[in-house]
Computed example of a mutant assay.
Amino acid sequence: MLKDLFIGLSKNQLLNTAAKKYGLKLGAQHVVAGTNVKETIKSIKELNAQGISCTVDNLGEFVYKKEEATEAKEQILEVIEAIHTHEVDAHISLKPSQLGLDIEYEFCLANLKEIVEKASIYNIFINFDMEDYDRLQPSFDLLETLSKDFSNIGTVIQSYFFRAEDDIQKYKNYRLRIVKGAYKEPEEYAYQNKKDIDENYIKLIEWHLLNGKFTSIATHDHIVINHVKEFVKANNIPNDKFEFQMLYGFRTDLQLTLAKEGYNFCVYVPFGKDWYGYFMRRLAERPQNLNLVVKQVFTKKTNSIIVLSAGAFLLGRASKRK
């Protein structure tokens, strides 16, 4: 129920527009690392000083015009230049849909090539975030095409997909981030039961740690983290073969603890005003995240947008039934 609620909210353009306009007043600074490149670089430097690297996501939703995709491309190129200029420990995460995948495949490919090529010059890694099932194979196709000319790219494997085991074996020579998945997917494509998703998640992590190039383990779950610690120790897997990843602003004490223990640690750093859809999907992916942010980062004002959003979503569903 909660997952369906947050996924429904993430797709609401009206609420997304309102959150974009009033985000800072609602406390969005606890969800994003900055609204512009300058603020974001400052946040990255603060994390780097604590032994934490970053992957930077230029937030953006509902991109259906070439002008919007081109603007997103230019913003990402600006971030790459800033990472190089300021010599910070950071790389890029991006969504193909933001670069025009929903508009035209070749247009998206050209935008991605420009980004990957510039990043390659500066030896900066680019991670292709994965989205819903309809965009899954086209995103892999983009990765494979660009891999013919560039080696500084990797992607994400989502454990709720039935095909995830085949995909992780096919792309084992890439740097991969392994996640559970944050979209509502049909039963014919994805596990629906949390237990099945969690079991497949652990299975994928273990397989890639043993067979893959580099593994990014994206989780806030200390049970999973402790399991990984024991697994790498038992199998003599060196620390330079993997990293833990968490979202900016979530479980910051645990982030610092892992970094101090000597594990590679990377924070997923979103920036920009278009934070709403991103945040709702994080709550859909793991509803316990709501407890984390309420406890440590959200103000009463920020909680209000979640309550109002939930109310709007439920009212919308009720009116559809009439």
Results as ranks from 00 to 15, higher is better:
247 L>V: 01
264 N>D: 13
210 L>N: 07
160 Y>K: 11
258 L>R: 01
251 R>E: 03
78 E>Q: 11
11 K>F: 14
64 Y>I: 10
286 R>D: 07
8 G>K: 09
116 V>C: 14
72 A>K: 14
288 Q>M: 10
137 Q>V: 04
79 V>Q: 05
321 R>L: 15
174 Y>R: 05
232 V>G: 03
282 R>M: 12
56 V>D: 02
217 I>Y: 01
74 E>P: 06
316 G>L: 06
211 N>A: 04
160 Y>A: 07
159 S>R: 13
287 P>H: 02
16 N>T: 13
84 H>T: 07
96 P>S: 05
62 F>E: 09
190 A>N: 07
80 I>R: 06
306 I>S: 04
201 Y>I: 10
93 S>N: 07
237 I>K: 07
168 I>Y: 09
191 Y>E: 06
65 K>R: 15
309 S>T: 04
51 G>N: 03
209 L>I: 04
53 S>C: 10
291 N>D: 03
75 Q>D: 13
246 M>K: 02
49 A>N: 10
46 E>S: 07
202 I>D: 08
179 V>P: 08
270 P>Q: 02
1 M>I: 08
221 D>S: 02
125 F>W: 13
286 R>L: 10
274 D>A: 13
72 A>W: 06
311 G>L: 03
131 E>L: 12
13 Q>E: 14
276 Y>W: 10
184 K>V: 10
182 A>W: 06
33 A>C: 01
303 N>E: 12
86 H>Q: 15
184 K>F: 13
206 E>S: 12
69 A>T: 05
300 K>I: 12
177 R>G: 01
269 V>L: 01
118 K>L: 15
204 L>W: 10
234 A>H: 11
118 K>F: 09
274 D>M: 12
10 S>C: 12
253 D>K: 08
116 V>M: 13
191 Y>A: 05
237 I>M: 08
119 A>I: 07
137 Q>K: 04
139 S>I: 03
89 D>E: 14
128 F>L: 15
291 N>I: 04
295 K>A: 09
265 F>E: 01
303 N>L: 15
199 E>F: 14
238 P>Q: 04
184 K>T: 09
127 N>F: 10
122 Y>C: 06
226 N>R: 01
241 K>W: 10
256 L>N: 06
267 V>L: 01
312 A>M: 09
315 L>A: 12
4 D>L: 14
52 I>N: 00
11 K>E: 13
15 L>T: 06
39 E>V: 00
184 K>C: 11
18 A>Q: 12
198 D>R: 13
250 F>W: 02
231 F>R: 00
231 F>A: 00
312 A>K: 11
196 D>H: 14
67 E>M: 10
1 M>L: 12
159 S>D: 08
249 G>Y: 00
207 W>H: 14
311 G>I: 00
